[in-house]
Simulated scan of single mutants.
Amino acid sequence: MLENTPYYHPVGKEIEVFNHAYQNKIPFLLKGPTGTGKSRFVEYMAHQLNKKIITISCHEETSSTDLIGRFIIKGAETVWLDGPLTNAVKEGAIIYLDEVAEARPDVIVAIHSLTDHRRELFIDKLGETVKAHKDFMLVASFNPGYQRGFKELKPSTRQRFIAVAFEYPESKVEIEILVNETQIDFDTAKKLVAIGNKIRNLTELGLTETVSTRLLIDAAKIICSGLPKRLSVHVAIVEPLSDDLQTVQALKDLCDLMI
């Protein structure tokens, strides 16, 4: 469990929906771009429910073995070691599969029996089936706009979840988030949010990802610690968005004018 309450500003009915999903033992799916607060929301809800949270950051090498467990050599013996998913199932924790669409297909196959009425995990290497603890909850997230058509969740998987879409918060809320997260002054927070919104609307640059709230928070933090504003915006917002020299220069010129 997290000791301190993570700061989270609700933008809709997501807290109410999550509570009902938890109460009814229904898996929960968060959809949305990078840096829109999906992970922070799950941390916040775990704290509110006083539940342990186990987070797995999925990538193209994440396999079902990584989640379920494996045999390891311990001294002269070969022993079984439960993976994080198995631990969560047994303990009644919240398992959070961040960017689940990035994981290997066998991960999706492994969690299917946990996402329907069975609520059980089959451990093929042991030939055992583990029934989920009554408090167990499976939460997953993915970015439907990233590399569209390449890393998508199949409809048969998506329909096993209650889903909530996360977007970048409206300006007023995003300013409040920056102030609360970093103690930056209101006027600078307002300028950073304006920069974020401006770049998000620049579709002609062809950016793979746009400015996340996370990037704005990073910029605000290093401004508060004393780094000059223009330099802070350049290294925290502009450079992470692109490696193309012309694009970086165009973004830098725009941000210099706005900050």
Results as ranks from 00 to 15, higher is better:
residue 207 L to S: 10
residue 128 E to A: 15
residue 228 P to I: 01
residue 122 F to D: 01
residue 107 V to A: 07
residue 224 C to R: 14
residue 223 I to F: 09
residue 202 L to T: 00
residue 178 L to V: 05
residue 115 T to R: 05
residue 122 F to E: 03
residue 114 L to R: 05
residue 123 I to M: 05
residue 92 G to D: 08
residue 88 A to G: 06
residue 184 I to R: 08
residue 159 Q to H: 09
residue 194 A to W: 11
residue 194 A to P: 00
residue 93 A to T: 04
residue 108 I to E: 07
residue 190 K to F: 12
residue 207 L to T: 12
residue 161 F to L: 04
residue 151 K to I: 13
residue 162 I to H: 09
residue 93 A to M: 06
residue 158 R to A: 11
residue 214 R to E: 03
residue 119 R to P: 02
residue 198 K to L: 14
residue 104 R to M: 12
residue 150 F to Y: 15
residue 135 D to H: 15
residue 198 K to R: 14
residue 181 E to C: 14
residue 140 A to G: 13
residue 121 L to A: 06
residue 185 D to T: 06
residue 103 A to H: 01
residue 224 C to H: 09
residue 229 K to S: 10
residue 118 R to Y: 07
residue 211 V to D: 13
residue 228 P to L: 05
residue 211 V to G: 13
residue 100 V to L: 15
residue 167 E to G: 15
residue 167 E to K: 13
residue 187 D to M: 07
residue 131 K to R: 11
residue 210 T to Y: 04
residue 114 L to E: 02
residue 202 L to M: 14
residue 134 K to V: 02
residue 111 I to R: 01
residue 144 P to T: 06
residue 183 Q to T: 01
residue 179 V to N: 02
residue 130 V to N: 02
residue 134 K to N: 06
residue 173 V to D: 07
residue 92 G to V: 01
residue 188 T to A: 14
residue 191 K to G: 11
residue 154 K to F: 02
residue 96 Y to P: 09
residue 138 L to V: 11
residue 132 A to P: 01
residue 155 P to H: 00
residue 98 D to Q: 08
residue 148 R to P: 10
residue 110 A to F: 07
residue 137 M to A: 10
residue 192 L to I: 08
residue 172 K to C: 12
residue 166 F to C: 01
residue 196 G to S: 05
residue 172 K to H: 15
residue 210 T to A: 02
residue 91 E to R: 10
residue 224 C to A: 09
residue 205 L to D: 00
residue 166 F to Y: 11
residue 140 A to M: 03
residue 212 S to P: 03
residue 205 L to H: 04
residue 115 T to W: 02
residue 108 I to N: 01
residue 227 L to W: 02
residue 166 F to H: 04
residue 114 L to G: 14
residue 102 E to K: 12
residue 203 T to N: 08
residue 98 D to R: 15
residue 125 K to I: 13
residue 197 N to I: 11
residue 222 I to A: 09
residue 170 E to P: 03
residue 151 K to W: 06
residue 177 I to Q: 06
residue 227 L to K: 07
residue 175 I to L: 08
residue 178 L to R: 01
residue 157 T to Y: 14
residue 119 R to E: 08
residue 188 T to F: 06
residue 122 F to C: 10
residue 132 A to D: 05
residue 114 L to M: 12
residue 100 V to P: 04
residue 101 A to T: 10
residue 139 V to F: 04
residue 143 N to Q: 00
residue 193 V to N: 05
residue 207 L to R: 12
residue 193 V to A: 15
residue 207 L to K: 12
residue 121 L to G: 02
residue 180 N to S: 14
residue 164 V to T: 00
residue 220 A to Q: 04
residue 89 V to E: 12
residue 203 T to P: 00
residue 156 S to A: 15
residue 131 K to I: 09
residue 180 N to V: 11
residue 216 L to G: 10
residue 200 R to F: 00
residue 100 V to K: 14
residue 165 A to V: 08
residue 172 K to R: 15
residue 108 I to S: 07
residue 198 K to Y: 09
residue 106 D to T: 00
residue 101 A to L: 07
residue 89 V to T: 07
residue 219 A to M: 07
residue 170 E to M: 04
residue 111 I to A: 05
residue 151 K to H: 13
residue 223 I to D: 09
residue 201 N to V: 00
residue 125 K to E: 12
residue 192 L to D: 05
residue 131 K to T: 08
residue 143 N to P: 03
residue 209 E to L: 15
residue 177 I to T: 11
residue 92 G to F: 08
residue 201 N to R: 10
residue 101 A to H: 13
residue 186 F to M: 05
residue 100 V to M: 13
residue 168 Y to N: 13
residue 149 G to K: 00
residue 114 L to V: 06
residue 139 V to L: 04
